[in-house]
Amino acid sequence: MRAMLSVEEVAARIVAGERLLLAGDEDLLRQLPKGHWVGGTIPYFIGEKGGVMTREKMFANKLPPEVISFETRFYSESQLPNIVADEPNHGFSYLIIPAFTTVHQAFAENVQTYASIFDRPLVGWVAGVALDEIGKRTPKVVDGRTGQWAEDRAVCLHASLVDHVAAEVGIVNPFTQGNGDTLTVERAGFCFSEAFINGKRVNLADYIESHGIDCRLPLVANYSGAMVNVSIKVVDKVENLVRFYAPLFPNIDYRLALPVDDYEASFAREFGKICADPTLSMNCILNFVYGNLEGKRMGDFVGPVTFGEIAYGLLNQTLVYMVLRNT
């Protein structure tokens, strides 16, 4: 079951003992009873009727019966590297991180250095708030088992699966690398004043401005065939630097993406290749805004629209999904 539900409907399911992954406005989540659920704040969704911003309903994912047990745990910035050790031997881990926090930044910059991070499926999203409430309210996560909330720690649900099923995490990226300049950086980070264009050091803000770059297009890196986006947050001409929604890494070649004319059609083309019903999926707030996804359907790929998607690492402008496959 993956659906947009009212507080009353979700509360009834919690009381009935259902195991739920929830996404919704903080005011809605706070009305729920304790039970077998975790959640994060966000008021944007791709629902059954298409993209929507709402504070009336929340998105509920019922854990499938193949999940035989699960544990929940909070992680501070310093505890995050322990996440790998806590992952089940056979299952998946579902992580929600509050946006604009040090735990968000630390995860994004360091997760790829965690030993064995790619050995077991890690999927999740970055909690947020309504765009007009950024700076006024804080994104939060909650462990429904204890009723404990956090705005400075991540919450993770570690789920064990039956033996004959395995979880596979995948992405659908509407963007591909363009054929333009190659951009590289010397260190990992969300913010840069200088970068290298085709090996030559430049001021990045000047480069973007002088080349008339459309900042709605992400930089795209090719990770052995996986296209990974890093979205431009702002070109700050006062401080003369560029901020991103995810880190850039050294030793990776980035190129500006080719423009996407029709996001809905681009996603639809990729969905057909997956050949499975998604157990989980989450899409990016930037796709929602730049692609005008309000009211537009995404096939079976319903779920929260987030401030960052997690498929092992932090991604931008990407749809992340998880499917269960018989092995």
């Binding site: 790619f118 596979e168 052995s224 092992y312 690492g313």
Partner: peptide
């Protein structure tokens, strides 16, 4: 090689990057 699994693509990128360094 053209890999299928996302985890493989990320993993291979990490190890080949480390071998290059």
């Amino acid at each position: 090689v053209s890999f299928t699994l996302l985890a493989t693509k990320f993993f291979v990128t990490r190890v080949t990057g480390r071998a290059k360094i």
